[in-house]
């Protein structure tokens, strides 16, 4: 065991001052130290994408970083996606298009696509589907996720 470090994780605009061992992965710190359990753990080796969050506006796998590396960064998780009672267009679209069943992979897909659309608001439909292949879902067969994301992306573009 090595000494714990004091770090500040800014999650959805709120500072969490926590003490972690350097080996603590970012997703473990977000879930355990900060109590934000909307971000899920599906594989811990970077393949499934259930732990996808936004780090300084970019979608990343939070199982493939150490919490100490995110000290001072702006983190956004699924809990910060809605604007109060108003769901993010992606969240509403997942509901409207039946883009989730068990819902375990959903936060990862939402943060992945929200992140991609923030980075590249004009990304092509093909590019979006390509990005969606980053994460795994076992329930939906992906087709409704694709529909949900393409519809939300079109709405978001129209609203600009």
């Amino acid at each position: 065991m090595s000494a714990k470090k004091n770090i500040t994780l800014n999650i959805n605009g709120v500072d969490h001052h926590v003490q972690v061992e350097p080996r603590r992965t970012l997703v473990d710190a977000i879930r355990d130290e900060c109590g934000q359990t909307g971000t899920h753990i599906g594989c811990e080796h970077g393949v499934c994408g259930a732990c996808t969050i936004m780090l300084d506006g970019k979608p990343v796998r939070s199982c493939l970083m150490f919490a100490v590396q995110a000290d001072g960064a702006r983190l956004r998780t699924v809990e910060g996606l809605a604007d109060g009672d108003r769901l993010h267009p992606l969240q509403q679209s997942f509901i409207d298009h039946h883009g989730l069943q068990c819902g375990f992979c959903t936060p990862g897909f939402l943060m992945l696509t929200a992140g991609v659309l923030e980075q590249e608001p004009d990304i092509s439909d093909e590019g979006l589907i390509d990005a969606l292949s980053s994460n795994l879902c076992r329930c939906t067969g992906y087709q409704n996720i694709i529909k949900a994301v393409l519809a939300a992306a079109a709405d978001m573009r129209a609203a600009r």
């Binding site: 350097p22 811990e44 080796h45 970077g46 493939l64 970083m65 150490f66 590396q69």
Partner: peptide, 26 residues
Amino acid sequence: ILSGGQSLVPTMALRMAKPAHLIDIN
């Protein structure tokens, strides 16, 4: 050295690598 970590961290998660020190060059 820890850089992007996208290969090193999973290797560590599987405990196939157990470095005693990581020098993060990010």
